[in-house]
Amino acid sequence: MTAEIECEQNKRVSVSREGWTPKIVMFCCNWCSYAGADGAGVARLQQETNVRVIRVMCSSRVDAVHIYTAFLEGADGVLITGCHLGDCHYVNGNEKTLVKYKFIKSMLDEMGIEDERLQLQWISASEGQQYAAFVNEMTEKIRKLGPSPFRKPEVI
C-alpha cells in the first residue's frame, strides 16, 4: 500500500491536451511595447486572446524571479517585449535585459524547456502591426508545443 502511494506521488501526470489552451504571460515595457499593444487594439487588429499582458516600466525590470514564477504557476510561455536597442527610455535598460535573457535562456535550455517558451522581442510604440503578429505567431508556436512541462494537471 505504501509503495502504491509513493508511486502515485512521484508520478508526474502529463497535462492532457484536450480542452487546453495556452496561457501566455507577456511583459510589455511602458514606453514602447505597451503603447504598441494599445495601438494594435485601436487599429482593431485580430489577435489571439491567450496572452496576459503585464505592464512594466522597462523590460529590464523583468527579473528571473518573474519568469520562473510565471512558469511554475502554470504559464505555457513567457514573452518579454521592450523598446528597440538604443531607444530605451532609461538609456540602456534593454541592453541589461539582453544580458539577463542570455543567462535565463541558457538555464531553461539546460532544464529541457523548449526555446519558444521564452521569447524576447523589441516592439516600438508605433508597431501595433508587429505586436499583433508577434502575439499570433508565438501563440501558434506554443499551441503546437503543448502544455509546459512545469504545468501541473490541476492548474486550469
Partner: peptide, 24 residues
C-alpha cells in the same frame, strides 16, 4: 526572499534563482 515554503512548486524558486546566479 522570494522563496516560500508553502509554494508547492515542482522545483523551488530558491534553487532556480541560485542556479541562475551561480551560472556565471
Amino acid at each position: 526572499k522570494y522563496y516560500d515554503p508553502t509554494d508547492d512548486y515542482d522545483i523551488s524558486l530558491y534553487h532556480l534563482i541560485r542556479f541562475l546566479h551561480l551560472s556565471d
